[in-house]
């Protein structure tokens, strides 16, 4: 990265290094959110729709896990994936996959907890109709997820915001390797430590702009969707 260029020049010139960093950041965050969606939404639905002993504890635990400290998760994944750790033979430490794993762990509780709330609220609303229509369990879960889709997208956005803004976990498990595991946030941390504050601020502005753009897109999609199906 050309550290002499100002942030504005960097953005205008579409510096290929910056583009690579942005793409990697998006790839890591979006992959983590996808994994979190695949695990978290069914998990949230399961907890919402079933009654079992210790369910209250499970909900409290899930809500508490939304506040998992990223460094702790980073450290745990680091110890797990280290060559001397139990999964060391995978050779995943200091790779983008390792960052995805760490962020998926951070994001899944957020998605699961918000999905649980959404689906449970919807279930309260639909319960009588479902009983009267004699809706089977599979169609029931599918319908609740589908009809809660706009709220679930908001849950996914919350997860995306968390992962895109996160630096503590990925810098530990990714190693902030130039051109390989350097993301927006770890690049900001690095440029700050180099005293290159204008570039760090520029990268920060780009990051915030991307997060705003994605949220705007989701908002627009939601508004359009609700007009036809809300």
């Amino acid at each position: 990265m050309n550290t002499d260029a100002s942030a504005l020049q960097l953005v205008l010139a579409v510096d290929p290094t910056l583009v690579a960093i942005v793409l990697l950041s998006l790839m890591v965050s979006l992959s983590a959110v996808l994994i979190a969606a695949v695990i978290g939404i069914p998990l949230g639905a399961l907890i919402a729709l079933t009654r079992f002993p210790g369910r209250g504890m499970a909900i409290v635990a899930l809500n508490a896990l939304m506040g998992l400290p990223p460094v702790v998760v980073g450290l745990a994944v680091f110890l797990l994936l280290s060559r001397s750790g139990p999964l060391g033979s995978l050779g995943m430490l200091f790779t983008p996959q390792a960052m995805i794993v760490a962020q998926a762990i951070l994001v899944t509780p957020i998605v699961a907890a918000l999905a649980r709330q959404t689906i449970e609220d919807l279930w309260e609303e639909y319960r009588d109709e479902f009983a009267a229509m004699n809706v089977g369990p599979v169609q029931r879960i599918g319908t609740l997820i589908w009809d809660g889709r706009f709220s679930l997208v908001t849950a996914l956005l919350a997860g995306f915001g968390r992962s895109a803004a996160e630096v503590g976990a990925i810098i530990i498990v990714g190693g902030n390797i130039d051109g390989f595991t350097r993301t927006m946030t770890t690049a900001i941390a690095l440029e700050t430590s180099k005293g290159n504050l204008p570039l760090a601020v520029g990268l920060g502005i780009v990051l915030i702009a991307i997060i705003i753009a994605i949220n705007a897109l989701a908002w627009w999609a939601r508004r359009t969707g609700e007009r036809y199906a809300g």
Binding site: E125, D128, E129, M133, T143
Partner: peptide, 26 residues
């Protein structure tokens, strides 16, 4: 047997899809 509640809850989809939903549930 079928039931129409005092305050029926519409599924979050089109009018037609609401009916289709019941058809496939039945």
């Amino acid at each position: 047997l079928a039931f129409v509640f005092q305050r029926p809850v519409m599924l979050r989809r089109s009018a037609e899809s609401n009916v289709r939903f019941t058809l496939s549930a039945a």
